[in-house]
Simulated scan of single mutants.
Amino acid sequence: MQVRDFMIRKTITAKTSMTVKELISILESNRIGGVPVVDDKGNLAGIVSDGDIVRFLSPHKEKLYLAYYTVYVEEAQKIEDILRERMNTPIEQIMVKKNIKTLAPDDDFESAIRLISRHHFKKIPVVNGAGRVVGIISRGDIIHSLSKSIFNEEPVQDQ
């Protein structure tokens, strides 16, 4: 079995220029946890997840700095202030851009399961030879494919 046989073809993507607010809307309305980020030609530029958003929006606690016997106190951030400041940030600033793992439509099932398990990924973009996103594979897709192969087998006959 090849990746093309079980990948999701109707891939929801985001553009690099989208804001965090727009991305949250896409994730929420589609009930998904992440998307590939593409440039204007549909080429993979990065990937962004709900975890990236949570880390970006996470307020920090009060901090103390000591510099030449002067103590500086940085006030703890409030979530309301962070949301106001950061919701219009382009996702290009928070997306993962380096070391993105991808699969090709011709890769086999074993390659997909190895890649997802080795790196603890939730989703992996599927790209064609030109670098365009043509699908996505998630852990759920792997489980679904395994389930179909397990439960569609003929029952073992007792002898």
Rank of each mutant, 00 (worst) to 15 (best):
R4Q: 15
F6H: 05
I8C: 10
K10S: 10
K10H: 13
T13H: 06
K15M: 14
M18R: 01
T19D: 04
V20E: 11
K21I: 12
K21C: 11
L23W: 04
I24F: 11
S25V: 13
L27A: 09
L27G: 08
E28N: 13
N30D: 03
I32D: 04
G33D: 05
G33L: 12
G33S: 14
D39K: 10
D39W: 09
K41V: 01
G42N: 07
N43P: 12
L44Q: 04
I47E: 02
I47Y: 02
S49D: 07
G51L: 09
G51S: 13
D52F: 03
I53T: 06
R55C: 02
R55N: 07
H60G: 02
K63Q: 13
L64C: 11
Y65G: 01
Y65F: 13
E74H: 04
E74Y: 05
Q77K: 04
E80R: 15
E80Y: 01
D81V: 01
I82V: 02
I82T: 00
R84I: 09
E85Y: 10
M87W: 10
M87S: 08
N88C: 04
T89R: 05
Q93H: 13
Q93T: 09
T102Q: 04
A104Q: 13
A104F: 13
P105E: 02
D106C: 05
F109R: 06
F109E: 06
E110D: 15
A112I: 04
L115W: 05
S117M: 07
F121V: 01
V126Y: 08
V127N: 02
N128I: 09
G129H: 10
A130C: 08
G131Y: 03
V133S: 07
I136R: 10
I136V: 12
S138I: 02
S138P: 04
G140P: 05
H144R: 14
S145F: 06
S147P: 01
F151P: 05
F151C: 11
E154T: 13
P155D: 08
V156T: 15
D158F: 15
Q159S: 14
